[in-house]
């Protein structure tokens, strides 16, 4: 195959994958709007989307479900982009916001802030900013701890340690906070879209869009960065700037997802790997594909959550349980493959 054919093949694969992922996302959104204790027909939802007459009661229901569906999609996209960025700048395919302790530390810091000042709960924007700072702190802790080792695994092990400690702390703090939050704290520890408000969506959407834009603009620097600092430098990109911008974006994306939906693990691991399998590792292609995949994965998980609760009558499972069941085997597979190498 010539270089031109190879290149055309890369671009074509990206376009096809994007179209398929977008189509999948659309059908998952429609399914998500229809699934729940009261099942709504697809026809009704399509009518709603086209702005046609819909039963008022059903309209209210669709609007409620729309909020959680959008929250799920945006969280998934955020985590998908975070995953690509953090894997790139750590040059480690096992990296993920949850595994590296970023999510749990963000949640601990948010809970601490809420204990000190419970009125913060009314300002979601401030909570997002605090969560962002927590995310930065978590990443720094993991980096500091991983300095003690040198293999690709030491970063992951350090992350697991930070995750364990800060999950414990978050557990304790959220337990104390239950009376203020008025939602079961497992929902924050393992993610849930039930507590998302309509007013949260613009915050989540703007952070997700900014993060995705940064990822797209940083594609070339990241492509050079993953091969080593020498490659960055001679192609005209400062590797430190790349590291700084990408980790800031990751922390912001993860922080906002944690502040609004809670911890949803393994999406940031699963989405980039599936994305690379589909479109290759060029960040121009993999970051947007990973965003779409993340959105698909989290909406799908949210549908599963609601489908289970509609038959079990035991209340909703946390979202993170489902994404964990999907994502953790991917981690296991990657670790096994790496050990064998």
């Amino acid at each position: 195959m010539t270089a031109l054919e190879t290149y055309r093949h890369l671009v074509r694969r990206y376009v096809t994958s994007t179209l398929i992922l977008a189509a999948a996302l659309t059908s998952l959104v429609i399914t998500s709007l229809s699934v729940g204790t009261t099942h709504l027909g697809f026809k009704e939802i399509i009518n709603y989307m086209l702005g046609l007459e819909v039963d008022t009661l059903h309209r209210g229901l669709i609007e409620l479900r729309m909020v959680r569906t959008l929250a799920a999609a945006l969280t998934g996209a955020s985590l998908g982009v975070s995953g690509v960025l953090i894997q790139g700048v750590t040059r480690n395919p096992l990296a993920e916001p949850y595994i590296l302790g970023i999510s749990s530390t963000a949640l601990s810091v948010v809970s601490l802030a809420l204990i000190m000042n419970p009125s913060l709960i009314n300002s979601r924007f401030e909570v997002v900013m605090i969560s962002f700072l927590g995310a930065v702190l978590g990443f720094l802790l993991t980096l500091l701890l991983s300095r003690l080792g040198s293999s690709g695994f030491s970063l992951v092990l350090a992350g697991v340690a930070v995750t364990s400690i800060s999950s414990g702390i978050a557990h304790l703090l959220l337990y104390l906070l239950q009376s203020i939050l008025r939602i079961p704290y497992v929902y924050l520890l393992m993610g849930s879209t039930t507590s998302v408000l309509k007013s949260d969506i613009p915050i989540l959407a703007s952070v997700t869009l900014c993060g995705a834009l940064v990822a797209v603009l940083m594609s070339k620097p990241l492509n050079a960065y993953v091969y080593g600092d020498e490659y960055s430098k001679q192609l005209g990109f400062n590797p430190r700037t790349t590291l700084l911008i990408a980790t800031t974006a990751t922390s912001l994306l993860t922080g906002s997802a944690v502040a609004v939906v809670g911890i949803v693990g393994f999406v940031g691991l699963a989405a980039p790997h599936i994305a690379r399998y589909l479109v290759g590792s060029d960040h121009r292609f993999s970051s947007t594909a990973s965003a779409l995949l993340g959105a698909n994965l989290v909406i799908l998980s949210d549908i599963v959550v609601r489908a289970i609760s509609s038959v079990s009558n035991l209340g909703e499972l946390p979202l993170g349980v489902v994404t964990g069941i999907i994502g953790a085997p991917i981690l296991a597979y990657l670790v096994l493959r790496r050990v064998r190498e």
């Binding site: 270089a3 190879t6 290149y7 890369l10 894997q87 790139g88 040059r91 480690n92 395919p93 690709g152 070339k220 492509n223 050079a224 993953v226 091969y227 080593g228 020498e230 490659y231 192609l235 005209g236 990109f237 690379r276 290759g280 590792s281 060029d282």
Partner: peptide
């Protein structure tokens, strides 16, 4: 002599970065 290869990429993708300047 060195190149990080942990993030899987193809030879084509690697060669293309040389065009950025």
């Amino acid at each position: 002599p060195e190149v990080f290869r942990a993030i899987p990429s193809t030879v084509m993708e690697f060669l293309l970065i040389g065009r950025y300047p």
